[in-house]
């Protein structure tokens, strides 16, 4: 495992910890899209079916279990916790996420490494992860003001994607057998979706001002 991959995993973990901290400390999920969180839970559940079939390393297994458990806990809190659910911006979280599910599934049926149950679901999880941030970005855009922890959450999530691209570039040169086109192309699309957010994040950071997205 190279340094980019490891830092990518760590920023991914940090983003989830920031989200859990926000929900736990403020008992609020305002600014967070339940639809994006549900899509991520589905991404992890469909991709990590290999927990039952392949053992890669203790690190790999633990991280997978942490991602599954934390995403389910976040969805549960946003739906069921008496205080947290009241702060959910339901009227702003209107992105038609079923279209993302359908499109990802159809694409997975067409484009996969092998036509097998686990492989098709793996491709589905890759396509779905690439677009799962969209409801979250739309919600932020609609609310305009982004609170500090929500801004950090999306920033670290974007950093994770960017670091995975460096990881693939590194692997491409080091490991001549590394050709994972489905993951790499989807990853590029996914990272591109953050470009706009990153732009405004750095402007607010440079000016030492609150993060605001244009309407």
């Amino acid at each position: 495992m190279n340094i980019f991959r490891f830092l990518g995993d760590m920023t991914h973990l940090i983003s989830i910890l920031i989200l859990l901290l926000k929900i736990y400390a403020t008992k609020s999920c305002s600014g967070i899209s339940l639809k994006t969180q549900e899509l991520y839970a589905l991404v992890f559940l469909t991709r990590y079916l290999d927990l039952f079939t392949d053992f890669i390393s203790v690190y790999n297994t633990v991280m997978k279990l942490v991602f599954i458990a934390s995403s389910l806990a976040i969805v549960w809190c946003m739906r069921n916790h008496p205080l947290v659910r009241r702060s959910y911006d339901k009227q702003l979280d209107t992105f038609r996420h079923y279209f993302l599910l359908l499109a990802s599934f159809l694409l997975a049926l067409l484009l996969h490494e092998k036509f097998a149950f686990q492989e098709v679901l793996w491709a589905f999880s890759i396509y779905l992860e690439a677009v799962a941030i969209l409801p979250q970005l739309v919600l932020l855009q609609r609310s305009g003001n982004v609170d500090n922890l929500t801004g950090q959450y999306v920033f670290f999530l974007g950093a994770y994607r960017a670091l995975y691209i460096f990881n693939w570039i590194y692997r491409y040169f080091i490991d001549p057998h590394f050709t994972r086109w489905i993951a790499c192309v989807s990853g590029l699309v996914q990272t591109a979706l953050y470009a706009d957010f990153f732009y405004y994040y750095f402007i607010s950071w440079k000016n030492n001002a609150k993060l605001q997205l244009p309407a």
């Binding site: 290999d50 790999n60 997978k64 092998k114 686990q118």
Partner: peptide, 10 residues
């Protein structure tokens, strides 16, 4: 396993 390629990334 031998039937599918192991995917080592998360």
């Amino acid at each position: 396993s031998s039937t599918r390629e192991v995917k080592d990334e998360l």
